[in-house]
Computed example of a mutant assay.
Amino acid sequence: MSEFTADELARIMRQYAGVTDPPPLDGEQRDTDFAELGCDSLGLIEVKARIETEYHVTIPENGLSTPAELMDYVNEQQKAKR
């Protein structure tokens, strides 16, 4: 499986959380809370569920409240499976 990137996260946020125009998530926005990026708690649940399906990882319900935390976690889980 390929690395989980900011572009992939932005795509999933658009498709499953209704965030029509997510900011670039590879700059300073990496450390911005999802709520401030326009992704409410229900949207974040949808995002995490889609990532679990596409990347075959289990994401904890609590924590991982920024794009950086989520991307790092998914990539770490993928490396552990190799």
Rank of each mutant, 00 (worst) to 15 (best):
D40W: 15
K79M: 06
I51P: 03
I45G: 01
T58F: 13
L70A: 01
D7P: 00
V74N: 03
V47A: 01
Y16A: 00
R82M: 11
Q78R: 13
A6H: 14
G38E: 08
K79Y: 06
I51E: 04
I12L: 15
Y55A: 00
T5F: 12
L25N: 03
P23G: 01
I59T: 07
P67E: 06
L9N: 02
Q78F: 05
N62V: 11
V47F: 09
T58V: 13
E61N: 06
A68S: 14
D21N: 14
P24M: 03
D31Q: 10
V19W: 11
Q77S: 08
N75T: 10
I45W: 06
V19N: 07
T32E: 04
E52Q: 15
N75Y: 10
K81C: 00
A6N: 12
A10T: 09
D72Y: 14
D40C: 05
M1N: 04
I45D: 05
G27H: 09
A49E: 12
L42R: 10
V19D: 02
A49M: 14
R11T: 15
P60F: 10
S2D: 14
E3V: 10
A35H: 12
I12T: 02
D26Q: 10
G38A: 03
E3C: 00
I59S: 07
A6T: 13
E46Q: 05
F34E: 01
H56T: 12
E8D: 13
P60T: 06
E52W: 13
Q15A: 09
V19H: 05
V57Q: 05
K79C: 00
D26W: 12
K81P: 00
E28H: 10
Q77E: 14
T66S: 10
D21Y: 10
Q78M: 11
E69N: 05
A10I: 13
Q15D: 13
S2F: 12
T58D: 07
Q77P: 04
D33H: 15
S65I: 04
L64W: 10
R30V: 02
N62R: 12
T66C: 05
L25V: 08
E54C: 05
M13E: 02
L9K: 08
M1D: 07
N75G: 03
G18F: 09
